[in-house]
Simulated assay, not measured.
Amino acid sequence: MVQHLALDVGGTKTHIALLSKTGHSPIAFIKEKKYHTQQVAGLEEVLLDFSPDMSNIESISIALAGPVINDEAQLTNVSWKVQKDQIIKATGVKSIYLMNDLEASAFGVPFMKSSDLLTFYKAENRMKGNAAIISPGTGLGEAGMYWDGNDFHPFASEGGHCDFSPRDNTDVNLLIFLQHRFGRVSWERLVSGMGIANIFDFLRTSSEYQLDKDMELSLLDGDVAANLSKAAVAGEHIAVATMDLFTRYLAIESANLVLKFKATGGLFIGGGIIPKIWNDHYESLFLQYFFRGGRLEPLLRSVDLTIILNPKSVLFGAAHFGITKGGKTKDI
């Protein structure tokens, strides 16, 4: 049986799967494994540990959290450098596909089941057109899907690294705070897991929040973003403020992305954060800020807004790309 490998390589984890597909049947996941990216020397080590025998592997499709240029990629939030020719040399597999992780997700969206997607805003006057994907995780990924009138053509972007744009005094003070830390401040510094931690660090310098020392230590112990989202549910004042600002910034940058791509075909929100925290409060807050588009508000209101619930969306898209050798997507 001909088999394929697909990988989702992120700053935190690397997810790899062995797959097969016969005729018109769905892609079948045979086996999967997750690795801690920071604890592995490189991608070749992951591939050979997972599948020492590559004789039945027809293709390897690799979705990477970083720009892919000339069949090479330097991951943004980890020191790995991935090169197509080195993977061919290590594995003996000739068909190697490298792509940006959000580009991979875009290839998979049209083939997902309805249960994998949650449309929380459905436009009354939806129009055909380009679509956009934004994905806050370890970092912030953004991609587009060009609509040619019949099919979607996904393309990568590095829009998450564009400059953060403040709107009010809180935003300006936050920008100055992060400029002292990072110099240049991109949207990724706010709309991501690291962004949640950065917002919290800013807010706890304010006299407005009297944070108990034990609570502060508990929030800083381990995964700060996860701790804060749980504390927000429990009503901890600073955690609520942190997650509200995160949601506000996600909404603003989502609207920016829709306007830049004229994404009347829909906005999709992926990543590991939003499906875990989403509730009526965050939905209301997101819509409040997303629709603040000035003269272009009617365009924003014509866009369906959908959360990608499937945590394997990137892996699934990479698998589809590799198996079909970059075949077209379809209408959503």
Rank of each mutant, 00 (worst) to 15 (best):
H153P: 05
H153I: 14
P154K: 07
S157I: 05
S157V: 05
E158M: 12
G160Y: 00
H161P: 03
P166H: 09
P166W: 06
P166Q: 04
R167I: 14
D168H: 10
D168Q: 10
N169H: 13
N169Y: 13
N169P: 06
V172K: 15
N173E: 08
L175Y: 09
L175M: 08
L175H: 04
I176F: 07
F177A: 14
L178I: 11
H180T: 13
R181Q: 15
R181N: 12
R181I: 15
F182Y: 15
F182D: 08
G183H: 06
R184G: 15
R184K: 14
S186E: 05
W187E: 08
E188K: 02
R189I: 02
R189E: 11
L190I: 14
L190N: 05
V191F: 03
S192N: 10
G193N: 02
G193K: 03
G193M: 05
M194N: 09
G195S: 11
I196F: 05
A197C: 09
A197F: 04
F200G: 03
D201P: 05
F202V: 03
F202S: 02
F202Q: 06
L203C: 07
L203H: 07
L203A: 04
R204D: 10
S206M: 06
Q210P: 00
K213I: 10
K213A: 15
K213C: 10
D214V: 15
D214Y: 13
L217N: 15
S218N: 11
S218D: 10
L220D: 10
D221N: 15
D221Y: 14
D223H: 12
V224Y: 02
V224D: 04
A226Y: 04
N227Q: 07
L228I: 12
S229V: 11
S229L: 09
K230V: 15
K230E: 13
K230Q: 12
V233I: 15
V233F: 14
A234C: 09
A234G: 07
A234P: 05
G235T: 04
E236C: 12
E236T: 06
H237R: 13
A239N: 05
V240M: 10
V240H: 02
T242G: 03
M243W: 08
M243E: 08
M243G: 03
F246W: 09
F246A: 09
T247V: 11
T247R: 01
T247I: 13
T247Y: 02
T247D: 04
Y249I: 05
A251D: 05
A251S: 06
A251E: 03
I252D: 00
I252M: 06
E253R: 09
A255Q: 03
N256Q: 13
N256E: 11
V258Q: 00
V258H: 04
V258P: 00
L259W: 02
L259I: 01
F261K: 06
F261Y: 07
F261C: 01
K262D: 11
K262P: 01
T264M: 13
T264Y: 06
F268L: 13
I269D: 01
G270T: 09
G270K: 05
G271M: 00
G271T: 01
G271E: 00
P275G: 06
I277S: 13
W278M: 07
